[in-house]
């Protein structure tokens, strides 16, 4: 159950998961606030004061910190597919990211409903990188479903093989494989 460092990585992996399992995957956004811990804050401010010029606008900054003290929130985005048990998470506490993240949700929503991804925005996840990981993902699905139904059409098998070749050729392939193991 990894947390991704970058929201772009989360978006990319989530879109791949949605591509493979659009019917069962759900995306949960959890916004949580709790009272801030006061013990750690004062040391932080003093350190900042020491680093910067003492004659700067520190009083204002201090007041800002005091104002923002009581509730501290964070936001967790989670993509979960109950059928395969895949969970992808991203956590942030920055307000500046909210707008971007919701637009990501919108993009993923397009995939979820079955519409083609929006080419104008981040929906066109960097194709070069995306291809390899997509190969890994689709192979995953291939295997799962093959064991379930017992049939595998030759065309899909061939496609998987081609993708495997691409995977070997590219350096990024290792990334996709590692993630497979983590799940």
């Amino acid at each position: 159950m990894p947390y991704y460092e970058k929201s772009e990585d989360w978006l990319h992996q989530s879109s791949l998961l949605l591509q493979a399992r659009p019917a069962t995957t759900r995306i949960t956004t959890r916004y949580h606030i709790k009272p801030a811990r006061r013990a750690t804050k004062p040391t932080k401010t003093t350190a900042d004061d020491g680093a910067s010029d003492p004659t700067t606008t520190t009083p204002a900054a201090k007041q800002e910190e005091q104002d923002s003290k009581p509730p501290r929130g964070h936001l967790v985005l989670k993509t979960y597919d109950p059928e395969s048990g895949v969970t992808l998470k991203y956590k942030t506490s920055k307000a500046a990211e909210v707008g971007r993240l919701v637009s990501m949700l919108g993009n993923l929503g397009r995939r979820m409903s079955g519409l083609p991804p929006d080419p104008s925005s981040a929906g066109a996840v960097d194709e070069e990188k995306g291809g390899n990981a997509a190969a890994a993902q689709s192979q995953d699905v291939e295997m799962v479903d093959a064991s379930a139904s017992g049939t595998q059409t030759p065309t899909t098998a061939a496609a998987a093989a081609v993708q495997e070749k691409q995977e070997k050729a590219a350096v990024n392939a290792g990334k996709g494989k590692k993630k497979k193991g983590k799940r």
Binding site: R26, Y31, I33, S113
Partner: peptide
């Protein structure tokens, strides 16, 4: 906003 703690959970699925 008025309470010091709590969560809001938003979910989307097909």
């Amino acid at each position: 906003k008025s309470s010091p703690k709590g969560s809001i959970i938003l979910t989307q699925k097909r």
